[in-house]
Amino acid sequence: MAPQAVPDAPGGNVPPAIRASGLVKTFGTLRAVDDVTFELAPGRIYGLLGPNGSGKTTLIRLLAGLTLPTAGWAEVLGTRMPSRQNLERIGYMTQADGVYTALTVAENLRFFGAVFGVDGDEPAAAALAVVDLADRRDSIVGTLSGGQRRRLSLACALIHRPPVLFLDEPTVGVDPLLRVEFWAHFRTLADAGTTIVVSSHVMDEADRCDELLFVRSGRLTARGTGREIRARAGTTDLEQAFLRLGGDVAVTR
């Protein structure tokens, strides 16, 4: 599944796929996202790491334009968010499965395909093949296991072949074997130009990302490749590195 084409910037100077500038989101007195600024290059996998409640989901929702920032702005593929039009170029796998349990696997895919303007059986079949659910296409989602629903959820985020993918804890409840396949597929998508932001609190997935962004209490505390971060923290253990660079509370596994 090749993503929709993203126009290259003239002169070979590739513009960032995602930009955030001074992003702030407060809920009452809580600063869920606190002055986050970054630029993410296209075709790479970014791991958003942080403990539960550190603001990862809110940051993704700000980037996808699902909630309005208190201050600052976010841009995806050169378009300021929120932008309904731009959502056609974004895939979002929510933390909850977000699939219709009374419908079949195929009906869920057809529905999300239709709202994205994708027709025909081919995109659904391709998305199902990725998550290895083709044999369950006519099963009612309510009868699937938790891991199978997670796979369907991913397939629904891929159905329109978006050039930007936000995946909020995509591998929760997915067995280790399939987790390996998920990551292999993320890599295939990134190689074809898709920009992927994966949130996770599982450190052993972090090394599969091209670059890591550590989030604590809504702030971006560190950024770099796994190797860079280990070197900076003076440790070979990412978890230790996170604790040294990011904060003082143990990262949940």
């Binding site: 309904r84 959502l87 056609e88 933390q95 349990t101 999300f112 709202v115 994205f116 303007g117 629904c156």
Partner: peptide, 14 residues
């Protein structure tokens, strides 16, 4: 509550 509205809002649906 099932997260489908959140997902629906991340599509071009109005």
């Amino acid at each position: 509550t099932g997260g489908t509205l959140e997902r629906l809002m991340a599509t071009p649906v109005t």
